[in-house]
Design a protein around this nucleic acid. Structure first.
Length: 429
RNA sequence: UCCUCGGUAGCUCAAUGGUAGAGCAUCCGGCUGUUAACCGGAGGGUUGCAGGUUCGAGUCCUGCCCGAGGAGCCA
């Protein structure tokens, strides 16, 4: 019976079939130890001379790294085996012998691995990251689904930029210039009018020439939006979601975190409530380390790190000056220079994980902002309509999935958190 | 675009201006419990490219190319 390695404990003493690839092998002449992986795990098979036909024994000694194979044998509990179980092989057939697999079981440089990403994904660490990615995305979806949110995905081909400021990838659309989406938020503001609370989850594209460990040109963003929700409520939502994600990973993907060498205690310390500070308070924190920083300056990566160093949990920074935030952010009724905006800055120097806030809901004010920002008024007609026909206070945020994964996994660079990273001047494979 | 670091065997790295080397991988041989197994042997090089200095350049100088890290930029 064909079984998967992750389930092997259920088959102790039973005859099973494993289909997979050779991860590594060792031999003592009359006994081969074959490490087989099948995507769900790695298990050691023992092939002993005299206990299998000579042809099979000799064949086992000749299998090369990453050759595809079908293994038959009996599951046995054995402390000497990595993982605690091993397969006592009675048959081993190769589907194909792989020649000169480039990634040997040793340290490699990032320059070497990135062009081999299609093969690098097979390694234990990358496998663990992708499993956590899957779990994290599922945790996000479940969180919102359980709260009655409707998943309404937004278009990827869009007629204009959300803000008109960021650099977008142009696409030829039957002779017309359109752009790859940089956010689904404006469309979310439309769908909440239909469904109340929604989220979209999909790829977003930024053509900025950012060359840092926090940036990809193509990344995935999860964006919830809720009608009749104000700033405090959206902060609460982001906090609940973050706690829910961390709990879920700790519950279901502890093994993967261990493979990655993650300091699990740091994740177990994540508890509500997260600190909430104003932009002004954040500036005071930065000034203790960097005297030249001025009120009104935007936070760069080093500033976010300074802020996060003061807390064990993610920290919410809210009420940024209007100049630092997008045109659609609602202004603070008590102070017109401030926006009802919030960023969630992750711990351990991971940087901004979430950005969001309360949206401008007054049609006249929004139109004024569109004009101030010299945005094409025609293109925003539908967006203004949303304020003409039953406007309401509403809020939402965007979560950069790759940054969240990087934080949870404890890895420095977001390029390892997505199967095939798209970066400045790197689109292969 | 700017700053810093780097480019030597398939990979990871070494080599006072003086015969280019090791470990891993590969191939051959040995080993009945290995844990990135181990032991012995073999093959493997346009030292990123182009100039220059020198009796002699992987090493020093100039220019260029490529990569990495970071900054800027950036919902």
């Amino acid at each position: 019976m064909h079984v998967y390695i992750e389930d092997i404990g259920k088959y102790e003493g039973k005859d099973v079939v494993i289909k997979g690839w050779l991860y590594n092998k060792r031999s003592s002449g009359k006994i081969h130890f074959i490490l087989v992986r099948d995507g769900t795990g790695i298990i050691q098979a023992v092939v002993t001379k005299g206990e299998v036909e000579d042809e099979i024994f000799d064949g086992a000694g000749k299998i090369t790294q990453e050759s595809s194979l079908i293994l038959k044998g009996t599951v046995r509990k054995d402390e000497r085996a990595p993982g605690g179980y091993e397969i006592v092989a009675n048959d081993l057939q190769t589907f194909q012998i792989a020649q000169d697999y480039p990634i040997t079981p040793k340290e490699h440089s990032i320059e070497f691995l990135l062009p081999l990403r299609h093969l690098w994904l097979r390694s234990r660490k990358q496998n663990a990251i992708l499993r956590i990615r899957h779990e994290l995305i599922k945790a996000c979806r479940d969180f919102f689904d359980d709260r009655g949110f409707i998943n309404t995905d937004t278009p990827i081909l869009t007629p204009a930029s959300v803000e008109g400021t960021t650099t977008l990838f142009p696409v030829d659309y039957y002779g017309e210039k359109v752009y790859l989406a940089q956010s689904g938020q404006l469309y979310n503001e439309a769908t909440i009018g239909a469904l109340g609370k929604v989220y979209c989850f999909g790829p977003t594209f930024r053509a900025e020439k950012s060359k840092t460990r926090r940036h990809l040109t193509e990344f995935w963003m999860l964006e919830p939006e809720v009608a009749f929700l104000e700033l405090d409520g959206v902060i609460q939502l982001a906090e609940d979601m973050t706690v829910s994600i961390v709990e879920r990973i700790l519950e279901n993907r502890r093994k993967e975190l261990e493979v990655l060498g993650r300091d699990i205690q740091k994740l177990e310390n994540i508890r509500k409530p997260f600190p909430r500070i104003t932009y002004k308070e954040a500036v005071e924190i930065i000034k203790t380390k960097e005297k030249d920083f001025r009120y009104g300056d935007d936070f760069g990566a080093p500033h976010e790190t300074i802020i996060s160093e003061n807390f064990d949990c993610p920290v919410f920074v809210h009420h940024y000056p209007t100049g630092l935030k997008a045109f659609y952010m609602k202004r603070d009724p008590d102070d017109d220079t401030l926006s009802l905006s919030v960023d969630m800055i992750g711990p351990e120097g991971v940087g901004e994980l979430i950005g969001g806030g309360q949206r401008e809901d007054d049609c006249d004010v929004l139109l004024k902002r569109v004009r101030e920002n010299k945005l094409p008024e025609d293109a925003y007609q539908w967006y203004l309509d949303l304020r003409k026909y039953g406007t309401c206070p509403h809020s939402g945020f965007g979560l950069g999935i790759e940054r969240m994964i990087a934080w949870v996994c404890g890895i420095k660079h977001v390029r390892e958190t997505i199967p095939f990273p798209r970066m400045l001047e790197r689109v292969y494979p």
